[in-house]
Write a protein that binds this DNA or RNA. Structure first.
Length: 131
RNA sequence: CCAGCAGGCCAUCUUAUCGCUGUAAUUCUGAGCAAUUGGGAUUAAAGAGGAAAGUCCGGACACCAUAGUGCAGCAUAGCGGGUAACACCCGUCCGUUGAAAGACGAGGACCAGUGCAACAGAAAGCAAGUACAGUUAGGCUGUAGUGAAAUCAGGUAAACUCUAUGCGGUGAAACGUCAUGUAAACCAAUGUUUGAGGGCUGCACGCCCAAAUUGGAGGGUAGGCGGUUGGAGCCUUAGAGCAAUUUAAGGCCUAGAUAAAUGAUAAGGCUAGACAGAAUCCGGCUUAUGGCCUGCUUUUUUU
RNA sequence: GGCCACGUAGCUCAGCUGAAUAGAGCACUGGAUUUCGGCUCCAGCGGUCGUAGGUUUGAAUCCUACCGUGGUCA
């Protein structure tokens, strides 16, 4: 597996409808305005360790163009930052990044939020393992 | 010059680095006797719109009987043409509107029938009949007055209706197919009579199905693959036609996702650019919206 | 992606078929009753009938186009 590249391929996308439902029902969450991270422990059939989904709510953003834009920014920010987190995380997880804000974001804003979320996630999960 | 009107074109661009999607080629590797097929790497060319939107019309395509008949229902409406088809487009007459260029028009019929008409007015229709004038009178004629409309073949059909023409229904979540796997149900063959019932518009007709046996193989749920992109396609030239459009020749291949692909950073051009994201595909209509170009029109001022 | 409903007072609705008064309940304001409050009674306030055009003498109602809200399909 090629962990050291800044890639985000189709295989890493969260697809299964069932996993999405599972995330909303029993997933744990971390907030860092304007983004919220939902995650849960899941094992995948195809050998990927981590799969990621991205959501921009239709109720807040009616224009499909704006929703697309937000999702692209979230994906791009994750792609830039995933390398660091990937080496530290052990186990299989499904991630879901939700955008909570009401205004169109800038890339810097999203990037900062994603960095915070990933480091917070690592702290939390490492603690749980040590305990 | 300003304002207005009509038509056409473009949809921020360029370079570098990282990244996404399917396709093609090369190559590595897993499964299989094989045909074949799963996964990865590199390279190449390509990768949202004029409205992709609203879902308002018309088709293609798929299934339901081969899509049949009558009624009901719905749609359209000067005339002529175009088209696969249309409620669209073109030409033209008439009407409305504008100072003009132009724009807009659900523009058949109330001498088939039925209904409706507040207030005002004698009266809005099985009827009744004001005032004045003309005339000897009856009666008739004219004028006044109310109103959108007044014995006139009255007004009203975006009132029912009539006339002409067209329309079967349901929609890619249609539909076909594969794997996992127990009974009712599904398919094929044999086969039966009456009624109920069922089959994808409401009713009637018509058509098909139905009990049992044998064989095959399916339903629910979540998914894979096909449908799925080469088409009433686009460009150029020539001919026919006032035009919409059409004929011929040559050239081109131009998105195919499925929690859903176009982004980030840096630099520059006048700037950081409007409305906005394909989801089966086409032809229109409507609505949202930045800029450029061409032609036309009148008013005022000057000559 | 397809299909289908609904927008009327601050809130919940009627009126729409078939055209001529925009109304009911709750809420709000004032008054009466009561020592005060509540209940009850009386009066009032409150409306571009979602928006814009059209048909008509006249439109909440009929027609068309937009805007908004909600539902439904495997």
């Amino acid at each position: 597996m090629t962990l050291n590249k800044f890639t985000f391929q189709k295989r890493e996308k969260l697809k299964s409808k069932r996993v999405f439902e599972q995330l909303f029902v029993e997933g744990k969450s971390i907030k860092a305005f304007p983004v919220k991270l939902l995650y849960t422990q899941v094992s995948f059939d195809d050998g990927e360790r981590i799969k990621v989904g991205v959501v921009a709510p239709k109720k807040k953003f009616k224009s499909a163009v704006k929703r697309n834009r937000i999702k692209r920014l979230l994906r791009e920010a994750y792609r830039q930052n995933k390398q660091e987190a990937f080496n530290k995380i052990e186990g299989n997880f499904a991630f879901l990044f939700l955008y909570l804000g009401n205004k169109m974001p800038e890339y810097d804003e999203v990037n900062r939020a994603i960095q915070q979320l990933l480091s917070a996630f690592i702290k939390k999960e490492c603690h749980e393992k040590i305990d």
